[in-house]
Amino acid sequence: MKKYWGLLKPRLDTLSRLTALAIIFLSLVIVSPSFASAANIINVLRITSLTLMMAIGVALCMLVGGIDLSIGATIALTSILFGKFFQVGQSTASMIMGITGMLAVSILIGLVNGFCIVFLHLPPFLATFGVQQIVRGLAYLLTSGLVYSNFTEDFRFIGGGQLFGIPMPIIIAVILLLIISFTLNKTTFGYRVYAVGSNRESARYSGIPVNKTLITTYVLSSLIAGIAGIVYTSRLNAAEPTIGAEFAQTAIAAAAIGGISFRGGNGNVLGVVIGALILTLVSNGMTLLGVDSNWQVGISGVVIILSVLVDRNASVRKT
């Protein structure tokens, strides 16, 4: 038995997280009759899918020992840009232009984040916090208070449509998830991400291009935020500069509950999925149970702290 313990231990974290998820799920099934309805489950999954998209990006940054607070603002700015582009022609062509513009700008924001962290040596928290303010400011400047809405049918399909009865956001999130999971587990880039996050000095001594890896990670996080922005704007059928204020928080919470360590190098994509699900289930469950919405915010805070505590105790025992 002892022989297998060393192999089992790393998997135990995921296992205990899955158990927590199952317990929450089952208790909701028991307490709330409306929870297990197909409509509600689909609803939960759809909400989870957006959280998940953003959490995956932030988790990448956390894996290299950083963080990305700018994703909410990135979503706001790119969504405004889409509105601007769309207004020009109100056609499929302007939609494609808009989408391309969104992705390009999100990549640019990621580059700025990476630049501030790698070349200006700013702590990731501060760098992305500052960039967040700048980006949000730009979003306000660009709209001067306007709200863009009434996009074309084909654009609204991205966030509101269904394929084989499955909402598009879920499909997009799953595809994204598979790509990132493959990237982390099966590519040299993924190996570098873990190496840099686990021990930056050792990565450097091994000839791993640390700076390039860091910048790429922040670009990926922003790009994913851009994609989430497309889905969100489409679903909302509107673009305004105030959206996404709490997105970074939610994403970080999901990643933290999912066992992505703030110190880097620890955690996996499956954990983030579980984390996003737990987060959504808790708030969905509270709504179904009629918990006052004023209480809900605070209770999710308790969930986050508890899960991180449990996680830390587990990792203390490990060493």
């Binding site: 190996y191 873990y194 190496a195 686990s198 021990n199 050792s202 990565a203 091994s206 000839g207 791993i208 190098g265 620890n266």
Partner: peptide
Amino acid sequence: LSLNLPIRTNIVHA
């Protein structure tokens, strides 16, 4: 070394 990563992963790092 990346202490929290597997032996085999450390071996291929460089």
